[in-house]
Design a binder for these strands. Sequence first.
DNA 1: CCGGGTACCTCCCTCGAGGTAAGTACCGCA
DNA 2: TGCGGTACTTACCTCGAGGGAGGTACCCGG
Lengths: 129, 129
Amino acid sequence: MTTSTRRGPYVCGIDAALDVVSGKWKGLILWELEEHGVRRFAELRRGLPGVSEKVLTQHLREMEADDLVVRTVYAEVPPRVEYALTEHGRALNDALAPLGLWGSERIRREGRELVDHADAAAMPRPAAV
Amino acid sequence: MTTSTRRGPYVCGIDAALDVVSGKWKGLILWELEEHGVRRFAELRRGLPGVSEKVLTQHLREMEADDLVVRTVYAEVPPRVEYALTEHGRALNDALAPLGLWGSERIRREGRELVDHADAAAMPRPAAV
DNA sequence: CCGGGTACCTCCCTCGAGGTAAGTACCGCA
DNA sequence: TGCGGTACTTACCTCGAGGGAGGTACCCGG
């Protein structure tokens, strides 16, 4: 199965939430879906520069199992699949918001610049520091 | 070095925050420190059942570098080191709070079956407290 | 003298998340 | 006829986080 080894007995809510969000692209997927509402597989792929198809599928499936996203398959001739946030996914995003603020402030404090999508697309993983 | 490979160019605040918090015990360390205010190494160790000394040191050092915790060494004969949250650490905890609520709700909502499935028999983490 | 406690460090090894590449089945366009 | 686009799956490989075990230097209680 693709489903990972996680889901230990959680000692607190943070634990549980972090588990659900831990995954290299989960945060960005949530963000993409929040921004655009509904996205197709290839659109998400283009939105997350560097992600491989396998991993994207994997993450999406996990998030579907976690009831964060809905996967809608259209039985059309050129395959079409759409992803959108569920109610819980949206709630998670709301809960993530203050964390995002904290993170932004941290970035600002460190004098590090926010890299936008376009630039990130060009670089693979520059590993600054 | 112990410092991990992270700190890529962040595409958003969530990204940055998750990076800082990602680490098997980071969340729990934050929680422990929030609850008790100040903790010694061995106290933290006992508070995080299952953590190895190496990893605890490692996480603590990273969090210190991230300015989340302060490490106070007392030059005493039996070594004494105390850890406490910094202002930023406390802010992070505050930002983490809604996420914790979301997680708790998630556990409550769907958790029953999952916990059941997680089975107390094997119980890798005694889930003390 | 021995064991236990403090707070680490160092080497070694496992295991799994994530990356790479190829295959699938079908279509439209040039 | 062949390439590109859709949305995957499968097999294989890498690499690093985290775990295990042992070492360090010092002291105290029994």
